[in-house]
Design a protein around this nucleic acid. Structure first.
Length: 157
DNA sequence: GCCAACGTTGGC
DNA sequence: GCCAACGTTGGC
C-alpha cells in the first residue's frame, strides 16, 4: 500500500462533501505530474485530504483509493470549467481515480505545522508545491497521524 | 486580492 | 527544441 496527498479547495470540494458522498471521482486535475501519480495508484492506497487556499490550510482527513485511474468525464464537457478541447472520447488526456471517505482527523493539521516538523522536511508537498497530488512516505504518514492526536492513539484502520 | 513560483503554450 | 509570454496555483 502506498500513501498520497491530494489537494482540494474546500469551497469547491471539502472533506465534509466527501463524507456526505462517501465515494467520489477526484475530477478536474489538469496537471500531468498529478495525473501520472493517479495512474500509479493502486486499490487500497491511502490519501490525505488536504484543504488548500482557504484558512485553515492543511490536512483535514484521510481517504482510500477505491477506483483505479479512468478518463475524467469533465474533460469532454464543454460546460465544465475543466473542459479540454484537446481531449476526445477516443483519446482522453485526463484521468482520475475514485476515492472513499475514511475519516476526518481529530483535528486539522495546519500547513505551518507540517513545515515546522523536522520529520516532514522532505515531503514532496513542499518540493512539488504546485502539484495537487503528491506521494507521501509511510514514515511521513505516521508522523502526520501522530500530530493529529485525538483521544488516545489515532489508529488508521 | 496580491503576487511568486512554476507549469504550459506557441512562435521561431 | 528553446524560451518568452502567459496562465494557474496556492500561500499569505
Amino acid at each position: 500500500m502506498r500513501y498520497w496527498l491530494m489537494k482540494s479547495e474546500p469551497s469547491a470540494f471539502s472533506i465534509d462533501d466527501l463524507r456526505k458522498k462517501n465515494v467520489s471521482g477526484w475530477d478536474g486535475v489538469r496537471n500531468y505530474q498529478a495525473r501520472n501519480f493517479m495512474k500509479a495508484m493502486t486499490l487500497g492506497d491511502r490519501a490525505f485530504f488536504y484543504h488548500s487556499s482557504q484558512e485553515p490550510v492543511g490536512i483535514a482527513g484521510i481517504m482510500e483509493i477505491c477506483g483505479l485511474a479512468y478518463p475524467d468525464p469533465t474533460q469532454f464537457d464543454k460546460k465544465d470549467p475543466h473542459y479540454d478541447p484537446k481531449a476526445k472520447p477516443g483519446a482522453p488526456v485526463w484521468f482520475h481515480v475514485d476515492v472513499k471517505f475514511l475519516r476526518k482527523l481529530p483535528r486539522l493539521v495546519g500547513l505551518f505545522e507540517l513545515r515546522a516538523s523536522p520529520a516532514l522536511k522532505r515531503m514532496a508537498l513542499f518540493r512539488l508545491g504546485r502539484v495537487s497530488i503528491t506521494p507521501v512516505t509511510a514514515a511521513e504518514w505516521n508522523v502526520v497521524l501522530a500530530m493529529a492526536g485525538g483521544d488516545g492513539p489515532f489508529i488508521d484502520k
